[in-house]
Design a protein around this nucleic acid. Structure first.
Lengths: 186, 186, 186, 186
DNA sequence: CATGAATGAGCCTTCATTCAT
DNA sequence: AATGAATGAAGGCTCATTCAT
C-alpha cells in the first residue's frame, strides 16, 4: 500500500480516506470539495476512492453519518447508571468536545443541511430529534412525558448546537454547560 | 418587460429575481441550484441575472443577507418601549414566523454554512452573535453584563434556531416560545 | 453630447470612439477587448458604438485601416520632388515615428494578423507589398524594374517593421534609418 | 488509445494534440479557435486536452514556444565550424523553410503578438532579439561589437520575417536570401 | 443621438464517472 | 487493490447584438 499522508489510521486505506475526506469536506463543503482534492490529500488516486465507495455520494453519506451526534446520545443513554443530571452532563460534555473544533462544527451544520438531499440523513435526524429527545426527556424528568419536558430537552440540544457553532469567547464550554443544565433542571 | 412568472413583486425585475432565487436556493441549495434554473423559474434569461448581479456569488450573497435574522433583532431592539420580556417576545415571535416554513429554515442553515466562504456573512454573524446578543442581554437583564447573562441569551437564540430547524409536532411555536422565555427569565 | 473622456477630438463622437478603440485594442488585442471596455473608456454606451459602426467587426476594420502605413507610403510617393534617398527618408522617418510607441507597433502586428479574417485588410496589404513596393523601387532605382530592386525595397520595409516591433536600445531610430538607407542604396 | 485523426505522431496523444492545435491555431487564430474544434480535429474530447495541458492558455503557450525560431538560431549558432556567411545561410535557409507555409508564417505573427499576454513569450523574444542577435553579430562581423553591426543583423532578421509574411511571387526564397546576405555582408 | 434592458450563442472549465490495464 | 487515460454532462461567465424608449 502506498504511504498515505495525514492519516492516523495509516494501515487501513478505507478508514484513512474517510478521515481525510472528513477534513476536506469540513474545509471546503461537501459540494465544493472535489474527489480529486481528497485523493491528493490522502495520497491515493481518485479511482481508488471510487473503488472503495462506489460514488461520491456514498462517501459523503458515510462521512455525514459519522458527523451526527447520534453515537454520543445513544452512548450516554446506554449508561443506565446515570442520573438525570449525569445524563445531561454526559451528552453535553461529549457533544461540546466532538464539535470543539470549528471544522467539526461546520461539518455538523452542513450535514444537517443535507437532509433534503439524502433520505438517510433525514431519518437519522428524525431519530435524534424525536426518538432520542423523548427518551432523554423520560430519563431526565420521568414519566409521564409532556410537551414541556420535551421542549426543555430540545432547548438543551439547540443550545449545545448554537454554542458549538459560535463558542462564546469569554465563556468556556464547561461553564456554559453548567449554566445550561442548571437552567434546564431548574 | 417580460411577464415574470412566480413573482409577487412583478414590476421590479431585480426584486423578482431575488425572490425566485431565494425559493430555488432553499429547495436545491446554493451550490446545487444552477443559474439556469433560477432563470427558468423567473421567466428571464441567465444573462439577465448576471447583468443585474454580476455573478452567481453576488446573487447568493444578496439572498443570504436577507435570510439572516439581523433585521428582526435590530428591529426589535429599536422599539425602546419594550420591557425585558417584551423584547424576547418580539424577537422570538418574529424569528419563529420568519423561519416557519421549512424552506426558510433550510436556507438559514445554509447561510450560516457560508460563513467560511463569504467574509461578509461571517461579519454579519459576528455582529449578530456578539454585538446584538450582548445588547439584548443588557436590555433584558440590565447592567452590569456578565457571562451568565450573555450565555442565557445565546441559549435563547440557539433554542429558536433549533426549533425552526425541526419544529416539534406536538408543540406549536407560541407555546414553545412561552416555555423558552419562562426558562430564560426564570 | 456627453463629456467624452480621453479624447483629443472631443467634439466628434465618432472620431473619439475610434481614437479610444485604437488605444484599447492596442492594449488588449482586437479579440480580447470587449466593446464594453471601449464604451467605458470613451464614456459612452455600448449601444452608441454599435449605432455608429454597426458591429464590432466594422469598428475593428476601421481602426485596422488607420493603423497600416498605407497613408505614409502614398503620402511620400505623392511628393514628386523627392529624390531616391529623399523618398526612403520620407517613408522611413514617418514610419518609425508612427510606430514609435509600443502600442502602435503592437497594433500594427495585430492588424497584419487580421489578413486571414478580413478580406479588406488582405487587399490593403497586397496593395502595400506589391503595388507600392514596386512603385517605390521604380522611383528609387529607376526603370527597368527587376527582382533585385524589388527585393531591396522589401528588405527596407521589413527592416522598418522589425525595428518598430523591437527598437534597439542602443541605437535610436534615425541612426538605424541612416544605416538602413546606406545599405539599401549601397 | 483511440485512433487519432490527422496526426503524424499517432502514437503519442500529447504530441498529436499539439500538432493538431498548431494547425487549428494557425487557421483560426489563438483566440478564435475553440478547444472544441481542436478536440474534434484531433478526434479526442475537449476534456482530454485539458487533462493534458490544464488550460487552454497552457496549450497556447506550448504551441507558441515551438513556433518561435529560437531553435533554429541556437541550432546554427551551435555549429561552430560555420563561417560568417555560412552562419547567415544556415539561419536564413532554415528560417525561410520553417515559415514557408503561410500557416506557420501566420502563426509566427500571432505568437509575437502574444508578448503582451504571456511573460514567457516576451522573455523568449528578448532572448532572440537581444542575446542571440548580438551573438550572431559577433560571429559574423567579429569583435568589437558596435551598433552598426547589431543593426545589420536586425535588418537581416527583419527581412527574413518580412519575406516569410509575404513571399515575393517573382523571387524565390533562396534568391531572396542570397541578395539579402550580399547586402548585409556588403 | 443615446441608453438601459434583455437575449443567445459559445467557450472554458470543473468534476464525477468509466474503462482498460 | 490500484492507477492513468479518457469521457460527458453541466455550469458560470463573456460578449456581441437587438429592441424599446
Amino acid at each position: 500500500m502506498k504511504t498515505l499522508r495525514g492519516c492516523t489510521s495509516a494501515n487501513d486505506t478505507r478508514k484513512c480516506i474517510v478521515e481525510v475526506a472528513t477534513r476536506v469536506f469540513a474545509l471546503h463543503g461537501f459540494q465544493r470539495a472535489p474527489l480529486s482534492l481528497i485523493a491528493f490529500e490522502a495520497g491515493v488516486s481518485k479511482s481508488l476512492i471510487l473503488w472503495y465507495f462506489g460514488s461520491k455520494d456514498s462517501l459523503v453519506l458515510e462521512v455525514a453519518k459519522h458527523v451526527l451526534p447520534l453515537d454520543i446520545v445513544s452512548g450516554c443513554l446506554g449508561q443506565e447508571d446515570l442520573g438525570a443530571q449525569g445524563l445531561l452532563e454526559c451528552i453535553g460534555s461529549r457533544y461540546l468536545r466532538k464539535y470543539s473544533s470549528s471544522l467539526m462544527a461546520s461539518l455538523l451544520l452542513q450535514t444537517i443541511s443535507l437532509e433534503n438531499t439524502y433520505t438517510e440523513i433525514r431519518m437519522l435526524l428524525d431519530k435524534l430529534c424525536t426518538g432520542y429527545v423523548r427518551e432523554i426527556a423520560r430519563r431526565v424528568f420521568g414519566e409521564p412525558l409532556n410537551k414541556e419536558k420535551v421542549a426543555k430537552i430540545r432547548i438543551f440540544m439547540g443550545s449545545l448546537l448554537c454554542y458549538s457553532l459560535r463558542p462564546i469567547e469569554s465563556i468556556d464550554a464547561s461553564k456554559y454547560l453548567e449554566s445550561l443544565i442548571k437552567l434546564i433542571m431548574h
